[in-house]
Amino acid sequence: MSFFQSLLDHINYLGAVALFVIGLFTVVTHGNLIKRIMGINIMGTGIFLFFVAIGNVTGGLPPIIDPAEEGGTFINPLPSVLILTGIVVVVSITVYSLSLVVRIYETYGTTDQDEIAKMIREENDND
C-alpha cells in the first residue's frame, strides 16, 4: 500500500521520466524522419515537466503578486522561468530540423530513413 502511495506522490516525476523514455525510443527506432523530430519534442517536454515538478511546493499558491493579499507560501517560480527559455530552444531546433526534412524530401522524394539509406547506397555503388 505504501508503495502505491509513494507512487502517487511522485506521479509527476514518473510521468516526466516516462515521456523522456518514450521520446528517446521514438528518435532511435522510428523510420520516418518527421516522427523523429516529434520524438525530440516529446523528450524535451518530459524534461521540462520534470523541472517544473521540482518547483512544486505542496499547498503553495501560484507565484503572482496580488496587491490585495499578503503572505502565504508560493511555489518556486525559478524553474518555470528556466523552462520558458528551454522551450524556445527546443522550438528553434525543431524548426531547423523541419526545414532540413523539407530539403531532404525535395532531393530524395521520401521521408523514410530506410528508403533514403537504400538510395544513398545505390548511388555509392554506382560511383
Binding site: 524556445v88 523539407v102 530539403r103
Partner: peptide
C-alpha cells in the same frame, strides 16, 4: 522578434514548396 521569426520561417518553408 519572436513574432517576426515565426512568420519569416513559415514563409520561407512555404515558398520552397
Amino acid at each position: 522578434k519572436v513574432a517576426s521569426t515565426m512568420v519569416t520561417l513559415f514563409h520561407t518553408l512555404i515558398e520552397e514548396e
